[in-house]
Amino acid sequence: MKKYLKLESLRTADVPPELDLRILAAGRMRQTALRRRKRLRLAAGGAAAAAALVAAAGIGVLPGFDASSRSVREDSAALAAMSDWTNVEQAGYNLASEISSSSSFFELADTRSNFEV
């Protein structure tokens, strides 16, 4: 860069003290407002997190639900066990149906024979 004459009197000047005081006071006020806004944001964020925790805890106290001890794997195993029981129950029902249909058939056969002349 070319060097050129620099004059301090063209570059800088002393600022009157009353101007200094007014401007610095305005700056302090604004920074106080910024700090207050930051605190409110943190408080709002904390409140939202607390609300989420309360909601999660509320779900945990519903009957039959033990949220603290159950894991996903345990849930899956429990569901599998329920479906096994359903299969056993289904097998029993099927057998019962067969037996009852057989007896129904024989009853029908007896009834028809009773009415045959």
Partner: peptide
Amino acid sequence: AFEILYHRYKRQLYGY
């Protein structure tokens, strides 16, 4: 922060 920034540049701006 503002105080430091202000004192750093006030004389230049006022001179200009």
